[in-house]
Simulated scan of single mutants.
Amino acid sequence: MYWSSLLLTAAAALVPGAHGAATLRFSCSQLVVDRLDPLVNPGVIPSPHLHQVVGGNSFNVTMDPSVDISTTSTCTSCTPTEDFSNYWTGVLFFRARNGTFKRVNTMGNGLGFSQANGGQTVYYLSSGKVTAFKPGFRMTVGDPTFRTAAQLNAKYRYMTYTCLATDMTRSGATTNFPKGTCAAGIMVSIRFPTCWDGVNLDSPDHQSHIAYPAGAGCPATHPVSIPQVFYETYWDTRPFNDKSQWPADGSQPFVWSFGDATGYGIHGDYVFGWKGDALQRAMDANCNSDLFSNAINCPTLKTQTLQQANTCTTKRMVHEDLDGWLKELPGGMQVM
């Protein structure tokens, strides 16, 4: 009952309302790891830093907001087959004592999705009536330039790292990279705001059209309650637990692909792509995940197996070494 209670508590705490709770949780296998960012750097190839991406296979260097991506994707790496959204984050790297870098792989969430080919777990949470996103909706959360706790905490909520002792670990979260070795990897959690201005599907900074709740409800400037989008990514840091390879001063060795060695630059990107009214139906039905099998308990949605989701991938558009030991981060991003 612990896991179910945790999800319900999280939903109730973060989204205003009192008309039932949705805790839709599912796996999205790795679609591609590539230096593209059609939201922040549309049309730029390569983008400044590397991303790991899941969701629909229409992900591209440019994604026209006037085009409904649920009509252009032919497969999705997520288990709900009507979800062609794209979800992406930066990529984690290990920086060895000799100054070289090695990309850290994602792995399937050990709580039910260990057979997934990397990627991340995606949640849509609510504790009351919410309005699902519209075609063309997109948003980001976090700021890759942040390097202090004060910067992060002043602007964003619920962006954390969990040093996994086991797959079940759900305590001890921090806003910075864990300082010691993590026996089962590092889980990165990214939660988006839950209030929308009700008008704009995007904004110049990709964030001003959304906001966090104010007190018991959404602020007057952003009066529409939306589902909380929430990512959990398991990074397989286990191959790098040999401290003799860590920096000589004993500092933690991980760095984001955008050059952040503190962890405070944590951020995520989202482009909505559910087909038709599928997400609204799921939220209205208070859909959730089965406590024991982790299957989606939502008759209104169509789903596929993890094995089927694993087959939806795209080829990298930027051809560069992402698998060997590198002298610098992709794009020459400086660690700072």
Rank of each mutant, 00 (worst) to 15 (best):
W3N: 07
S5W: 14
S5G: 11
L7N: 06
V15Y: 02
A18H: 12
G20E: 10
F26V: 01
S27M: 02
L31Y: 00
R35V: 05
D37M: 11
P42A: 01
I45N: 08
P48C: 05
H49W: 12
H49N: 11
Q52E: 07
V53E: 02
F59P: 00
V61F: 04
V61M: 06
M63V: 01
M63H: 03
D68G: 14
S70D: 03
T71D: 06
T72E: 02
S73T: 15
T74I: 08
C75T: 02
C75E: 00
C75N: 03
T76C: 06
S77I: 00
E82S: 10
E82I: 05
Y87V: 08
W88A: 00
G90P: 10
V91K: 04
R95Q: 08
R95H: 08
A96E: 06
A96I: 04
F101V: 08
K102D: 05
R103K: 10
V104D: 04
M107D: 01
G108L: 00
N109Q: 10
G110I: 00
A116F: 06
N117P: 07
S127N: 15
G128R: 02
K129C: 08
M139C: 02
V141L: 09
P144S: 13
F146C: 06
A149Q: 14
Q151V: 07
N153K: 12
R157Q: 12
T160C: 13
L164T: 13
A165C: 10
R170F: 10
A173G: 15
F177L: 12
P178I: 11
T181H: 07
A184E: 08
I186Q: 10
F192K: 09
W196N: 01
G198M: 03
V199W: 03
P204Y: 01
H206A: 15
Y212H: 02
P219T: 04
V229P: 06
E232K: 14
T233F: 14
T237I: 13
P239W: 12
P247C: 08
W256C: 13
A261V: 07
Y264V: 05
G265D: 07
V271H: 12
G273M: 11
G273V: 11
G276I: 02
G276H: 04
A278G: 07
Q280L: 08
R281M: 10
A282C: 11
M283L: 09
N286H: 13
N297A: 05
L301D: 05
L301Y: 11
L301S: 03
L306M: 07
Q307H: 12
H319Y: 08
E320Q: 12
E320T: 06
E320G: 06
D321N: 13
G324M: 12
W325Q: 14
E328W: 09
P330K: 13
P330T: 05
